[in-house]
């Protein structure tokens, strides 16, 4: 069932993405660099919200998946075809997510947060240990891939993630997740395999984060565990997604744009205060903006726009 409204939304989304894809012709310096960061966070936050929005499980595992993705490219870019690397990263991300999900998603949300919080650090420790044993250090990813290429790849990936998110939202899986988020007991007794539904979604978001890592590796040039698995990334993604709001597909994007600009500004002028900014943003979301910008938008619309109905 595709309604005229759906077609309008699809066309609008396609036009917006097309417009975004033109940006490198306008600027290939600072603005492109910021836009690439935004595109990266858009993909990460949107795929994060696909899972965490309906289920209310807060995943802090993004950095773990992302870091693994960068390592896939770092290890494979000389020997394997470039197009294969994101696919391998996706596979590894999905498998790791499935394993983590099987262990933790049967249990309450607190266990999941804690487990994912340490996951990036755990993977980092293991990778560092393996590197030490094999006598490797960090690695150089020297390719002919430019920032412009990375940007376009990310825009393409964003289009894919939005499409997948849209399809899931209309599918039985998406409906099942909404029910789980409302009342897991009811979900189970209505015939929903709740553990499976959560694991599948978590696998999707894990795979996407790993692909983003794989695509971005050439941007960093030099990759080592302490930067590739930096836990701050997970928190940035959570903040942006929640600031925008997870109730709509476009919600995270509404958080990514202002927060990236703010983050860029703060880390330029007061690099020691970025953590303070993160903290304040978290508190702001809890106390002032529950539901994020999407929640605010819905509240305002209900107050002022619903009069006609």
């Amino acid at each position: 069932m595709i309604t005229p409204r759906d077609i309008r939304n699809l066309l609008l989304a396609a036009a917006a993405l097309g417009l975004a894809a033109l940006l490198p012709f306008y600027d290939s310096g600072y603005i492109l660099s910021i836009a690439t960061t935004m595109a990266m966070f858009t993909v990460l936050a949107t795929s994060w919200a696909l899972f965490s929005g309906p289920t209310h499980y807060i995943s802090l595992a993004t950095a773990a998946f992302f870091g693994l993705g960068t390592f896939v490219t770092g290890l494979g870019f000389q020997t394997l075809p470039m197009w294969l690397l994101p696919l391998i990263a996706a596979g590894i991300g999905a498998v790791l997510a499935a394993l983590v999900g099987m262990v933790t998603l049967r249990l309450s949300g607190v266990y999941f947060v804690i487990f994912t919080l340490g996951l990036a650090e755990l993977v980092r420790q293991v990778v560092t240990w393996v590197q030490n044993r094999t006598g490797q250090r960090g690695m150089y990813v020297l390719t002919s891939i430019t920032e412009r290429d990375i940007y376009w790849q990310l825009i393409g990936l964003a289009a894919l993630v939005f499409l997948v998110g849209w399809l899931i939202g209309r599918s039985r899986l998406g409906f099942a997740l909404r029910i789980i988020g409302n009342d897991e007991t009811v979900a189970k007794h209505s015939g929903i395999d709740t553990a499976m539904a959560k694991i599948v979604l978590f696998m999707i978001s894990g795979a996407v984060a790993a692909v983003v890592g794989a695509l971005l590796a050439p941007r960093y040039i030099y990759i080592e565990p302490s930067t590739a698995f930096a836990p701050i990334l997970s928190f940035q993604v959570v903040i942006m997604a929640l600031l925008g709001g997870t109730g709509r597909l476009w919600g995270p994007l509404a958080g990514v744009i202002p927060f990236t600009i703010l983050w860029e500004f703060i880390s330029r002028h007061a690099p020691n205060q970025t953590l303070l900014l993160l903290g304040v943003a978290f508190l702001l979301i809890v106390y002032v903006l529950p539901g994020g910008f999407v929640g605010l938008y819905d509240r305002l619309r209900r107050r002022f726009g619903a009069g006609g109905q």
Partner: peptide, 9 residues
Amino acid sequence: VVAGAAFGH
């Protein structure tokens, strides 16, 4: 109610 119809028997 659809929640009951979609995944059940």
